[in-house]
Every structure is written in C-alpha cells, then in structure tokens.
Nucleic acid binder design. Sequence first.
DNA 1: ATCTAAACGAGACGGTACGTCCGGTCTTTTC
DNA 2: GAAAAGACCGGACGTACCGTCTCGTTTAGAT
Lengths: 222, 222, 222, 222
Amino acid sequence: MQSRSTPSTRAGGRPRSTEADTAILEATRQALVDLGWTKLTLGDVATRAGVAKTTLYRRWAGKSELVVDAVAELFDELELPDSGSLATDIEGVVLQFAALLGRPETKTALMAVVAESTTDEPLRERIRASIVDRQKRLVLAGRARAQDRGELPAEPDTAAAARTADLIFDVIAGAVVHRALVSAEPVDAEWAEQFTSLVLGGLSAVSGRGPTAVPSAPDTAP
Amino acid sequence: MQSRSTPSTRAGGRPRSTEADTAILEATRQALVDLGWTKLTLGDVATRAGVAKTTLYRRWAGKSELVVDAVAELFDELELPDSGSLATDIEGVVLQFAALLGRPETKTALMAVVAESTTDEPLRERIRASIVDRQKRLVLAGRARAQDRGELPAEPDTAAAARTADLIFDVIAGAVVHRALVSAEPVDAEWAEQFTSLVLGGLSAVSGRGPTAVPSAPDTAP
Amino acid sequence: MQSRSTPSTRAGGRPRSTEADTAILEATRQALVDLGWTKLTLGDVATRAGVAKTTLYRRWAGKSELVVDAVAELFDELELPDSGSLATDIEGVVLQFAALLGRPETKTALMAVVAESTTDEPLRERIRASIVDRQKRLVLAGRARAQDRGELPAEPDTAAAARTADLIFDVIAGAVVHRALVSAEPVDAEWAEQFTSLVLGGLSAVSGRGPTAVPSAPDTAP
Amino acid sequence: MQSRSTPSTRAGGRPRSTEADTAILEATRQALVDLGWTKLTLGDVATRAGVAKTTLYRRWAGKSELVVDAVAELFDELELPDSGSLATDIEGVVLQFAALLGRPETKTALMAVVAESTTDEPLRERIRASIVDRQKRLVLAGRARAQDRGELPAEPDTAAAARTADLIFDVIAGAVVHRALVSAEPVDAEWAEQFTSLVLGGLSAVSGRGPTAVPSAPDTAP
DNA sequence: ATCTAAACGAGACGGTACGTCCGGTCTTTTC
DNA sequence: GAAAAGACCGGACGTACCGTCTCGTTTAGAT
C-alpha cells in the first residue's frame, strides 16, 4: 500500500509488523470519525493503534500521507455497476461516490489532503496514484462498456479520447464533490438522474463534435 | 465585512480601528501566499499587520473564519462578461474563476476552509454567504441575460428553475475546481471551450425535459 | 494618603472623586482576601470598586503602590496598650501585631511588597513611610513610657539610644514575622511571654553594656 | 534535588537529563540576579539553560517551586564556624546569613516565595524542607557545641528544649532578615555583636527560667 | 542454539503555535 | 478636565503536538 515496496537492503533484523500497519490505518479512520482532520494527532492515532509514535513515523512521513493511505482503501469499494445502460451506470456511480463522501472520515479528510497537496507536489502524486486514479478507471471502464453496448461510438483519435475522458471525469467527480461538500445539499436519486441527463446530453455535443448523434437518455425518447 | 454590522449596543469606549481590519485581511492574504494555509499562524498575521494578537482574536473566532473573510474579498472581482452569447459568457466566467483559483492564496485556502466546514456548521454558513453566493449570482445573471437574448426559454416553474440553476452551478464550479486543484491540469481556453460545449449540450437535455429544443451550440444544429 | 498631597495645579475641570479612593482601597483589600497577592489584578480591583481602570492608574503607579496603601491603613489599628509594665506592654504589642499578620490580606501582601521593594527603591521608601514607621513608633513610645515608669534608665547618648531602638524593633518585628509567616507556627500568649522574657533579658545585657542592671522581668524575680 | 528520589516505576523511555537540572537551576539563579523575581519568566530561564520550556514544566510545577530549589542550594554554604565561644559562633552565623541575604538572587527571591507560600501550603512545606530546616540545624548544632563547652547547661526537658530552639531560631533569622530586607540597614560586625549580646542575655533569662546564670559574653569579663 | 540487527514500547527532548490573560496606554463619549 | 468604557500593543502564561532522540526489550532470520 505505501512506500516500502522494494525490500532493497534485505539485511538481518526484525521485520516490520504487518499487523501494525492494519491497526494504524484502521485507527486513523476511526480518529477521523471521532475528531475530524484538524484535531487528529499522530500521537492519538498511535495510542489508538496500540503502537509507539516512532513506529508510525518509521512508515509515514506525516499526517497527510497517513490519511491519504487510510482513506484510499475506502475507494476500493467503488465499482462500476452493470445496470444495462450508460445512464443508469452513471447514476449508480454517482450515488456510490456520494455515499462515500457522506462518510465522516472521507468527508473531513478528502478536501483537507487536497488542500495540503496544493503546496506539496509529492503529496499530490500520492493522491493521484492512490485516490484519483481509482476513480478515473470507473470512467474509462464505463465508456468501454458503453462502446461495447453500442451506446457510444468507438474513438479513432486516442488523444481526443483521453481528453474527453478527463473532461468527463472532472465534471462528474467535481460536481458530486461540490454538491456534497460545498453546497452541502443531498446527492439523492433525483439529483443523480438530472445530473446524468445533463452529462449525457453534453456528451453527445462534445464527443460528437459533428454529426455523431447518440441517443443520450433513453427515457427522454418518446 | 463581518459580524458587527448592527451598532447594537452603542456604548462608550474606543471604537474599533477600521484600518486594523484592512491591514489584517491584507496581511492574511500575503501570509497565505508566503506560507500556505497550514503554516499560516495567527501570530504571524498579527505581526505582519502591525497589530496585537488580541486585536485579531477580538474580531475573528479562529484561523478559518479569518481566511474565509480574507479570500472572500477576492471573489468580488468575478463578474459576468457581456460577450454576446451564452457560450462565450460561460467560457469567460470559467476562465475568470480558473484564474482566481490559480492564485496561490486562493488555491491553498479554498479547499482547506471547505474541509474545515465539514465539521463546523457555522463556518459552512459563513462560506456560503461570503463565497458561494458570490459565485452563484453569476449563474443566475448569466441565465437571465441568455433569456433576454432569447438563447434560453423563460422558466414557468420557479422551483424547477432554481433546481436547474443549482445543478449548473455545481457542475461549473465543481468541474473547474476539480480540474484545477485535484487533477492539477491547466484550465485553458481549449478546455473551457470543450467544457462549455458539454454544459450547453447538457443544458438543452435537462431544461428541455422534452422536445423543447434550444439552439444551444450553433455548431450542433445541422 | 498617597501621591497627590498638594493640589498643586488647581485648574478647572472635574475634581477627583474621594469616594473612588475609598472604594478602590477597600476593593483592594477584599481582592487580597479573595485572590491573594499573585492573582490580584488591577482590572479586577477596578471592577470591584465600580471604577474604570484609568481612574486607578491616574492615582497609583502600579500594583505594589496600591497594595502598600491598602494595607498601610490596617497598621493604624496598632497601638501601645498601657498595661502597667514593660513586659506586658511588649506582650500586648506582639499579640496585636501577630493578629494583624494573621489576617489574610496582610499575610499575603506584606512579604510580597517587601520582596518587590528589594529591587525598587522608591517602593521601599513608601513602605518605610507608610508601614514600618507606623510600627517603630510603638517601640519608641514603649521605651519612653518604661523610662517614665523607671523600668528603664534614661539614655544619655542619643545615637546609642537610636541604635538600640532600631535593634529592638528589628528583633521584635522580625521574630514575630518569621514565626508567623516562615515557621508558620502560632504566635500565642505562651510564645509571646517567652519571647518577651528573652527580649527583656537581652535588653539589660545590651543597654547595660556594663554593670547597669535592670530588673528584666519583674514578675520572675522573687 | 526534587521529587523523584525513588526510582519508583523504573519503566522504559528515555531517562531525564541530569545536566538539564543543573543548567536550569544555575540559569534560574542568574536570571534572578539579572531580572529579579518579578521579571523572571520561565521562558527566559529555559532559553538561558538551553532547554525547552516543556522540559522545565515537566520537572517543576511553577516559578515558585523552581526558585525555591534554585536558592535552596545556596543555603548549603551556611555552616557553623567553630570559633571557640558561643558568642562568636553566633556572630559568625549571623554574618554568614547576612552575606547570603545580601546576594541579589537570595534577596529578591526569599521574601517572594515566602509571600507565595502564605496561600500555598505545599510550597510552604517545600520551603521548610529545603530552606528553613537547613538554617535551623545551625541553631541546634550551635547549642550542642555550647553545651559541650559547658557554656550552656544540658536540657533535661526535651520539649522545652525544642521550644527554646525554635524561639532562638525565629529571633535570629527573623531579626537578620528584617534588618537586611525591611529596614534595609547593613548587618555589619558591630550590629552582629550588639545583637548577639542581646540574644545571649535573653537566653539566660529564658533557658534559665530562674537564677541559672550563664557567662553571657566571656570576652567582656576580664 | 546462538548471534545479530532492526523493529518495538516508552517517554524525554528542543521547538513552535496555541488561545488567554494582564499590564499599561490610548481614544471616545458623557458628565 | 475627570470619569466610564473599552479597544489597543506587548508580552508571558501554561498546554498541546510536532518530529527526533535515546533508552531497554523483543523477535525473526542468518549462522
């Protein structure tokens, strides 16, 4: 999950406890729930995990890195539902993501680490690798499936395809986050439906960029 | 700017210095530029402003409230450009907002205070009143102007109109913020154009909610 | 009592309130009782006295000066009892002084201002004038009365007389203060009698400085 | 020096630095010399000692406790000179004590902590154990030596003996302190001689409690 | 079965910022 | 022009965490 991937200098000595890792990440999430990002302290996490502070610092560089790893695990739960149509697939993902953002540990941590990352480039990379990419694959998978179904045309220009995927991703993730955390309004089925309708309508305008018309939302067709 | 609007208990005593307010807010913005949200301390702001720490605490409850007020002033710069069409109006606003998010003080502060607000209801209200509403009025003004131009139909159902405005606002603000701060990719003219195209395309699908077609983007009409 | 003795610049304007003086000194004593020297603050005294802090600073230079004046008034209560013999006169004064030192305001304030005075010469003078001299006159009066009674011989050498008076004063005041505040043992009638016996015995040895014998303690001699 | 005498709970963890103790106490004495009791701050002491403020608070409860320990070490210097007679022994101790009181750190600190102790019982105990008892043993040792020499009779009644010792101690310590700090007059050889004469004269009156005469000052008798 | 080197718990360490309190000063309106 | 009110600057308070360091104690793998 985190930094020590290569057992580089495989020397003698006691190996690190994997149970400690698990306990620390779980303790971190619980501390986020109980205290929120700001009042969470590494000393408290160590105590909750039944671990010395040094053990914690041996593995993570600081609070931000630890929290990124702790919440990243939650993003593994996200998956693309195969609901039969692109529209309901999007609605499903939107609601899943909203449910994740509704959890207190995610809510308080996500914006905080993003804020940190604006002045910490390595942290931004870690967030991208651990969190953002986990979300973006859903967009890519959704498009592939829609293309399989024939709901979307195949993309001949791979550069343009990547650009469009990025756009769609920022629109979906951005809108849900903004609705949930900034506007602080509920992301319910009704909103998800209206939003999906907008995205699909816009998608044809964008990807089309010409006469490539697509039946955006099946329920709007009489 | 902040709390003491009503001269409620106009009693004796030395009045508060308005110059101090100005100096503190300016010092706060400069400290955000120099240090970022995390390393900014109220003691340092006080020193920069040539003011005692107590003066600062007499006016603001904490770091978050102060920073909200400091960056809120920057959002006054946003305005709706009258560029002749809804599409270019949106592109203009998007680029303006992106430019604002590109400034270091805004970049580091905005997500941070939003993160704080997830566990601080009064702070969320302050953000809504000071920042979010300042942005949302641009959406409302843009729609009104587009309706004047005939680009958009009048809305008979006011509740639905409000719902659509909120949706559009979350989509625009959310996408720009996500692109700029989470994906950390540039919000340039090209992206703005593509994004606007998506929004306008989706707008017809949403507000239409039926056969009410609108010449959203001139190039999509055959 | 304090600084403004001469109405020097009798100019126009509102005259100072004498009631304020009284209220401030009384409030100071009460604050000493409630809070002790260290926790006593001038702001609190002002509030108790129903007076603005500026009024307080217009009259006294600081906490020490104010407290000296406040407790000095208590020393006016000390007086030399005419009990018929030097021994009982001394015992009476000792017990009076001990009773004064037993009051919480005096107990906490006296050593504190003396401590301050070790690094503040004007304060030492104020203490001497307001407090010490009020005590020393009892010694002088007691000796004069004893000489009138014939218990002590007249002093031909005035310089030596002054020196002896100073010595006796330091011994009496010092011993009582030390017993009461440092050793924190009760200064009761038994102790006062034993101590007086020591002083009178020593007095003959000192003032005598030769064969000049004096009936040190008349009741102990058969 | 202070609380942790017993290695009670010998647990893990980094042991406390004994060098820090030494440095802090020395820095405290120097700060007393430079600043006096009132202006001494624990932050300044920490800086002088090259130590963090937390280290200081981990060991001492507050300014008073620290200063008591710092000045207590100085009282170890006091010792009973064996000068051949009780009178010169007393004079020697008086002058030693006066010299100690003349040092700026002692002068400013002693009365201050006594003042504090009037509203702080644990502090009073600390003063008694660290300072007062260090002085009182001189009185006891002086009496024992005088009894060995035959200058004073043996005491059959131990309770009365203790009472007398306490009295003598309060008289000597009290008189010297009062002369030096309150009257602010020099405690020189002349004063010491006169004072000693008084004490010895009084001693015979007290301990004698009858005709038990003692050659008060052997050098005055040819 | 021993050796060994790193991980571990505990907790003290030097720092930094916190938010509060107080000391004295000043500015304003009221008397 | 004094008085009440209260804002002002400055500075110390005692606390909380930070991230580092020194201890003595496991503990698995290499010998």
